[in-house]
Design a protein around this nucleic acid. Structure first.
Length: 835
RNA sequence: GCGGGUGUGGCGGAAUGGUAGACGCCGGGGACUUAAAAUCCCCUGAUCUUUUGAUCGUGCGGGUUCGAGUCCCGCCACCCGCACCA
């Protein structure tokens, strides 16, 4: 008996080699075909590929292979986001060079990716730690420097005391370092910044054109950019100084009863000689910034004794130092309007400051008492002199106009977005190509001296930046004077590396970061797929670099990613012993309805389905699964069942089901008879309908639906007797599953005697004439409930359907002699009888 | 607090306002086999009913409609972002 099974352990490797030898997935920029750039977020080489990568790259792979079948020249590259702190941590823990560690991880992960059979153009592979890549990045940095988009200033930074480095605001989560989890400290350091705020308006407006991005991501970016408009104006203080404040509610200015300044505001700092003031400032800094702490934090203030003169009434108002005012937003000072701002309300209540109503539902409620919270809503201005009776909107404009006329203030726009601090006191990153000259200050490294390469001989015996303490590396000469000078020892934030890699994939000349003509051919990326965790940081920075490079004439394209898709996580059930300690899936087995340990049979609690994570031991290693079931079963699993944007629960039973289907298909392909004759109208129609539907599903990234339809057509083909239509259906299935299960498809394709690679084949053609049903099932309802179904010719006239419906025995029984008042007929669908 | 999302069988999930539960998984029964694996066939929302069938059923409460998982109004629960941003 012949072994009629598909054997991935032989087939997978064979076809992977065949594709590689044929250069099947090498993108040709000079092709006449329409271009299609499919990109998944490149991985950080942390050690091993995990199921999340497999899911992400399988989706992109299906799109890439599908696009190729539809006649596109596809660019589907892969590379490595290779700089970053884990490599340095490994260096410290395992005494291995970050480069060695990274390159070895890349080698291992590349081998893993190859086993899955992704249709990647490996000729374009690079790692961001390649001197060639980061050298070009340094060139781009200098281009931005020359264009005035880079500047250096002393700034208070978020200092991570564990990682000994500066963190971007985005990398501080609840007051803790995003990686180390350590409480972030404030330090003043000279830092390099990129002027992302110059592009705040463009980045915000650009979101409107990104129709194929998830609304969620666009909203998150919109909030992050945080545009607000209002009035910035000056208060004259009793000590002769002037205090600038910013408000979005100039309409409520007559309700102001105090001013509040941040603890690190210059005026507060100027008063810090007073021990009481100094103590209060200290207290403000101590306050936590976690959600829970902020929620419950009491509004605290310190009355400076200074008063501010109200710009309209001239009334003196106390100036407080307050713990709820942030120095780095607006001017670091606010006017307090307790009636219409909740924070001000709480503050005024505590310090017994006047709470005046200046907005009311209508003019007659001007004297309505305030409740126990501020009224931030819309209404009519009251108790406000010349503003009385105006709408909030009109009053805002009027106050701004008067301030500008007299000259004590002006309408402004304030952004939540800050410039991007890119200096990192780290070794494993792109060296910032600047030389600090004693005579000329910071001087760019001449471009012909790029790349500024990292030294190999470094030590990680002590915390801090190894570049800083390297004996020779930083010593160089000033490019202008030739005198001894020092290199900048900070490296670029790793997010810089991932801010332009998609350009380098599209074009990689040796002597330039990219060729703009090549970029124009491929960009924007048609589908960009990755995790939603990059919704703000990476995606905003990448958009910024693209716009910045566009603004200085390096490229034409303004938005890098035409469509974004954020896929869900791969999850798995968790298992724990009674004491709460986690168990891996291999350590447990099912005993009837219960879970027990494999060894000892101790009872196990099957817990929540959560993201695969090492700490919960619910990780499934792709390699082990591929060993057992081959690449195609895993790929099929990744596409089945769950919609791609939702989480996908991994299960042993599920992968076994996929494995069974792989074999089912194999048997079906094996039964293929090219010479079969005879008709099978139903199967033919189903095959043609499936060709259309699966294409639509893939284009909508609804892989789970495409999978379901392929199951259906497979089932129907299995049951059908040999016919020409069945042979057509089998060929169609073969081609339609080929982007999803490419190894099986190639193997079967070859076995059927077809020449060439199915990876190079075209998507099956459907015949529109064969899509049409000639008979349809009509639902018959009585009072909106289904009573019977009948079969009728497609396009049957309404009267016929009505007659057929009324002729139904079941319908007559349901009617039970009642008078038919109305009959609704939807052609080819249903008849609803109303009594 | 603000913003966004989700809610359908034991589970993952289908369903242009028109037969709810396609497809897959789990489960049950059977065939084949010395046996097992593999494979194949049947059943599988709930309740009642001998069959025919009937009633209920898409988080909850209303509404629009001949007809609502789908549209409208009001709630609830869970998940994810952001957060003292003036």
């Amino acid at each position: 008996m012949t072994d009629n099974r598909f054997d991935p352990s032989h087939a997978d490797g064979r076809w992977q080699s065949a594709w590689e030898q044929a250069g099947t997935f090498t993108a040709d920029s000079n092709s006449d075909k329409p271009k299609s750039y499919i990109l998944e977020m490149f991985p950080y080489p942390s050690g091993r590929i995990h199921m999340g990568h497999v899911r992400n790259y399988t989706m992109g792979d299906v799109l890439a292979r599908y696009k190729k079948m539809r006649g596109a020249e596809v660019l589907h590259p892969m590379g490595w986001d290779a700089f970053g702190m884990p490599a340095e941590n490994a260096a410290m823990e395992k005494k291995v060079h970050p480069g060695t560690w990274t390159r070895s991880n890349i080698e291992g992960m590349k081998a893993q990716l190859k086993r899955i059979g992704f249709a990647l153009d490996w000729t374009r592979e690079f790692a961001t730690c390649d001197p060639e890549y980061y050298g070009h990045e340094q060139a781009l940095f200098l281009d931005m420097y020359e264009a005035g988009l880079v500047y250096r200033r002393q700034s208070e930074v978020n200092w991570d005391p564990v990682d000994m480095t500066v963190l971007a605001n985005e990398q501080v989560i609840d007051g803790k370092g995003w990686r180390s989890g350590a409480e972030v400290e404030k330090r003043k350091l000279d830092q390099w910044f990129l002027k992302i705020t110059d592009f705040a308006e463009d980045l915000l407006d650009g979101l409107g054109e990104l129709k194929d991005w998830p609304d969620k991501v666009r909203l998150m970016q919109e909030n992050w950019i945080g545009k607000s408009s209002g009035l910035e104006f000056l208060f004259e203080l009793s000590n002769g100084e002037k205090l600038p404040v910013y408000t979005t509610r100039p309409d409520t200015i007559f309700g102001a009863s105090f001013c509040a300044i941040a603890a690190d505001h210059p005026i507060a700092q100027g008063l810090a000689d007073d021990p009481a003031v100094a103590a209060f400032i200290e207290e403000c800094k101590r306050g936590g910034t976690t959600a829970a702490e902020l929620e419950t934090a009491e509004k605290l203030g310190f009355d400076t004794g200074i008063t501010a003169k109200h710009p309209f009434t001239g009334a003196p108002m106390p100036v407080f130092i307050a713990n709820f005012v942030l120095m780095d937003y607006g001017t670091g000072a606010v006017m307090g309007v307790p009636g219409h701002d909740q924070r001000d309300f709480e503050f005024a209540t505590k310090y017994e400051l006047p709470i005046t109503r200046v907005v009311a539902k209508d003019a007659s409620e001007a004297d309505a008492p305030m409740g126990d919270e501020a009224e931030a809503g819309d209404g009519v201005i009251v108790n406000s002199d010349f503003l009385d009776g105006m709408s909030v909107e009109d009053a805002k404009a009027e106050v701004i106009k008067r301030a500008e006329d007299v000259g004590w203030g002006e309408g402004t726009t304030v952004w939540r977005l800050r410039d991007w601090g890119i200096s990192r006191q780290r070794y494993w990153g792109t060296p910032i190509p600047i030389i600090h000259s004693p005579d000329h200050g910071p001087v760019p490294v001449p471009k012909d001296q790029l790349p500024v390469e990292l030294p190999e001989d470094i030590d990680f015996d002590t915390p801090g930046n190894p570049l800083e303490r390297h004996p020779t590396w930083k010593h160089t000469t000033c490019p202008i004077s030739g005198k001894p000078a020092l290199r900048e020892t900070d490296t670029l934030d790793t997010f810089a590396n991932s801010s332009w890699y998609f350009l380098r994939f599209a074009s990689q000349p040796a002597d330039a970061p990219f060729d703009p003509d090549e970029i124009a051919k491929w960009l924007p990326v048609e589908h960009y797929i990755g995790g939603v965790e990059h919704a703000i940081l990476h995606l905003l920075y990448a958009r910024f670099w693209t716009r910045a490079l566009s603004s200085i004439g390096k490229i034409e394209v303004k938005e890098p990613f035409a469509a974004l898709f954020t896929q869900g996580m791969v999850t798995h059930e968790t298992y724990a012993l009674g004491d709460g300690s986690w168990l891996s899936p291999e350590e447990v087995k099912k005993d009837g309805a219960d879970w027990v340990t494999v060894e000892g049979g101790k009872p196990v609690v099957a817990g929540r389905v959560t993201k695969m994570s090492k700490s919960k031991k619910n990780v499934v290693d792709p390699d082990a699964i591929i060993d057992q079931y081959g690449a195609d079963a895993v790929r099929w699993f990744m596409l089945s069942d769950s919609p791609p944007e939702r989480d996908l629960p991994w299960s042993e039973a599920g992968i076994e089901g996929c494995w069974r289907f792989v074999q089912r298909l194999w048997r079906l392909f094996d039964a293929y008879d090219p010479a079969a004759s005879g008709e099978d109208k139903n199967l033919s129609r189903k095959a043609h309908q499936t060709i259309v539907a699966v294409a639509e599903d893939i284009e909508a990234l609804s892989f789970n639906k495409a999978v379901a339809r392929l199951y259906e057509l497979t089932g129907a083909s299995e049951k059908a007797a040999p016919s020409e239509a069945r042979s057509f259906a089998i060929r169609a299935i073969l081609h339609m599953v080929s982007p999803m299960m490419p190894h099986l498809a190639e193997e079967a394709h070859a076995k059927m005697g077809a020449s060439g690679l199915i990876a190079e084949a075209a998507w099956p053609k459907h015949d529109p004439a064969l899509l049409v049903e000639d008979e349809v099932t009509i639902a018959i309802q009585h009072k909106g409930k289904l009573r019977d179904t009948i079969t009728a010719p497609k396009g049957a006239p309404k009267e016929d359907l009505e007659a057929l419906a009324l002729a139904s025995e079941k319908v007559q029984r349901s009617l039970d002699g009642a008078e038919v008042r109305k009959v609704i007929v939807v052609p080819d669908r249903l008849v609803n009888i109303v009594t």
